[in-house]
Amino acid sequence: ERADSEKPVHLEADRATVQDANKLATFIGNVVLTQGTLIIRADKMTVKEDANGFQYATAFGNLASFRQKRDGKDEYVEGWSERMEYDGKADKVQLFKKARLRRGKDEVHGDYISYDAVNEFFQVNGEGGTSTQTHSEGRVRAVIQPKKKEPKPEADNS
């Protein structure tokens, strides 16, 4: 949801390391980041912060996952991948390797998927040529459900 980026970020993990030099925090083990309706789960996550307090997280997992409610709809977008990058300012998630995104009944697979939560726009890339790590041989697969046409109101012949 659009309001998510204004909500507090809650982050839990088994342990964490903070490096003074590059201001990087690394969370390890059962990592869960929540911000409003957004939830990211991972085995490991690095988090940086910009001067305005926006968070930028990179999540790693087998697989890392994210889930976020769609704006104004009682429906969720979910995604999975080996690596996931979350931009708290742009409210955008990028999925790398074994990427899968599901929105309602639609689902796409690829090697790279980016999802822009503000505009609810997603883009899928397959990796050209043979790709060892995806069963889809680097090709994009999408299942887009036909939208049921709203029944036209009957013409009033009276």
Binding site: E6, P8, V9, H10, L11, E12, A13, D14, R15, A16, T17, V18, Q19, D20, A21, F27, E49, N52, G53, F54, Q55
Partner: peptide, 28 residues
């Protein structure tokens, strides 16, 4: 919040050893 911590000023590393919980609120 965490249980257990080790700070090493030479390496510039701080380890939070278990049960790490962070709440970050830009508007606070």
């Amino acid at each position: 919040r965490a249980i257990g911590m080790e700070m090493n000023n030479r390496t510039g590393h701080t380890e939070l050893l278990s049960q790490v919980k962070v709440v970050h609120d830009k508007k606070r």
